[in-house]
Design a protein around this nucleic acid. Structure first.
Length: 495
RNA sequence: GGCCCUAUCGUCUAGUUUGGUCCAGGACGCCACGCUUUCAAUGUGGAAACACGGGUCCGAAUCCCGUUGGGGCCA
């Protein structure tokens, strides 16, 4: 159910992504960032990155770094920061304590917020009782109307600041959910701040969004139940309202919120095993958005023009790695040889067989290109071309036999091949020529497999591999002949 | 437990606003066949869904009611 949004003047749309640096950039956060980015681009607005690092105990600079790096890697760039001129540093909550202090003081002065002196233990006890009695868990605080002198007396005791939550119905409209109604009396007195300058999540969000003039809050549906609390805070402070869009979540295959428990939940992990940013973007946008056409392939540039809110989905999407693999394969096939070489080489270098044999850059490029259409992600590079790097191929002699041919026939064929190949001049030793010559030769058999199969196995030592002509071209005449000779030798051994 | 969200092939989804053109379309995956020396790539075809139960209506995936399932949040 879609509802009318608050009117924003053209070009004044402001959206944001606000991750906590308590973990690496999450797939879900990346998707939310992407949608916000697209929203801003599409409507000529601004997209802002805010690091929500108020929880000092769980925040870590290394995660902040990961978030920033991987957003950039994906091509999701923000338009603004606390400093002038780009590229911008993000906003950080820890650098904004003065701002929060002002607002919290204001609430306290107006008697809209108060100090709560209940200990964690007392609160836990209350919660437990409410659970047993099957009544809503909420803390309506007995200190909410304590007078200022009493507060001063208690001031040495540990306290937190709460909002005097009004008993009312909170009603807001969400672009995807329609009208959403919450009963605030079920909420209890909302915790705002640990002390005058350490805001808690819901309070900090409201202040930040207001001061950054955010007018579109598009975020995960897990925040839907936080929204009435934030609206109550907004109302207490008489701040402007914003448009809400709560995005359905991404599930793992067990239909749980995608988390670290399901193998890879961070962008960095996908990046590491060799997914391309273009593929990830395409995959992410397809999970929860569609253009209403049969188009499956999207790039950022096109999306910036074509994205529209109505294409957003209302229910959760299950993360489907098969589709990501397919998409990545598609993008891999599209990139050119140079680029592929550059991307794939590091993955090849990681494989331990690499140093056993050295190839020129030109040859390595040819070897790698054989993998291009065969892999779905970069870390699979090497699996079907490892034989190039081995001095001795290990395979059973019987693998050389095509269909019903026996040892004797196979030996004859290989011997013949050896002779033919040895007679080719170095100058003519290229794929096209080889193909012409050997196809012609193979044509003398019932089918080409009689000749081509043993040849290919002799060269690769594998049941499955790229074709023999490409292999010969890379190996060169000398090594080709040597591999055929080894195969013949193998056939000479007693079975 | 309370509150909230949600429901079309295994998965991502089109179709729901304005009921008939939908015995439900596309994509991934799967299966078969073709091409082919193997694998891959590629071409063609196939199996595969309106959660359930009641209504309303000449007619419902689409509207109404209920049930069930799944999920989220809870300082």
């Amino acid at each position: 159910m879609k509802t009318e949004p608050i009117k924003i003047e053209p070009g004044h749309l402001r959206a944001r992504i606000a991750p906590s640096p308590t973990g690496a950039l999450h797939i879900g956060t990346a998707r939310t960032a992407l949608f916000n980015f697209l929203l801003a681009r599409r409507f000529g607005g601004k997209f802002i990155l805010r690091i929500e690092d108020t929880d000092l105990s769980r925040s870590d600079k290394k995660y902040e770094k990961d978030i920033i790096e991987n957003l950039k890697w994906l091509g999701i760039i923000w338009d603004e920061g606390p400093d002038k001129g780009g590229p911008y540093a993000p906003y950080r909550q820890t650098e904004r304590t003065d701002i929060y202090r002002n607002y919290i003081q204001k609430l306290l002065d107006q008697g809209l917020a108060f100090y709560c002196f209940h200990s964690q233990k007392e609160l836990d006890e209350e919660k437990k009782n409410q659970l047993i009695q099957k009544i809503p868990q909420r803390h309506i605080c007995s200190f909410r109307d304590l007078d200022i002198n009493e507060v001063k007396k208690k001031s040495k005791k540990k306290s937190i600041i709460r909002l005097k939550t009004p008993q009312k119905i909170v009603n807001f409209s969400d672009f995807l959910k329609g009208q959403v109604v919450f009963d605030a009396s079920l909420l209890g007195d909302i915790a705002l701040s640990k002390d005058i300058e350490t805001p808690l999540y819901n309070f900090a969000v409201v202040i930040d969004d207001f001061t950054m003039r955010i007018n579109y809050v598009m975020r995960g549906e897990d925040h839907l139940s936080n929204t009435p609390k934030q609206i109550l805070i907004q109302e207490a402070l008489e701040l402007d309202k914003v448009n809400y869009i709560h995005l359905p979540l991404i599930f793992d295959p067990n239909r749980k919120k995608l988390s670290k428990r399901f193998g890879a939940a961070s962008v960095a992990e996908y990046r590491r095993v060799g997914y391309l940013p273009e593929a990830l973007i395409n995959f992410l946008v397809l999970m929860g958005w569609n253009p209403g056409t049969n188009q499956e392939i999207f790039n950022l540039e096109g999306l910036e023009k074509d994205f529209f809110l109505e294409g957003l989905q209302t229910s959760a999407a299950v993360f489907n790695i098969e589709k990501l693999n397919w998409l990545n394969g598609e993008y891999l096939k599209k990139i050119n040889a140079d680029k592929f070489y550059e991307l794939a080489l590091p993955y090849l270098e990681k494989k331990k067989f690499f140093e056993k044999r050295l190839f020129s850059k030109e040859k390595l490029e040819k070897i790698l290109i054989l993998e291009k259409a065969r892999i779905s992600k970069l870390n699979e590079v090497g699996e079907s071309i490892d034989f190039f790097f081995k001095k001795t191929l290990i395979y059973p002699a019987s693998l050389l036999f095509w269909q019903k041919t026996d040892k004797k026939e196979t030996k004859e064929i290989l011997t013949r091949l050896k002779k033919i190949i040895s007679e080719i001049s170095d100058r003519k030793f290229n794929p096209d020529n080889l193909k012409n010559l050997l196809f012609n030769e193979a044509g003398k058999f019932e089918n080409k497999g009689y000749l081509l199969w043993p040849l290919r196995v002799a060269l690769s030592g594998k049941k499955n591999s790229p074709g023999p002509f490409e292999i010969m071209d890379i190996l060169g005449k000398k090594d080709t002949l040597q591999r055929i000779a080894s195969a013949i030798k193998k056939l000479n051994l007693p079975a």
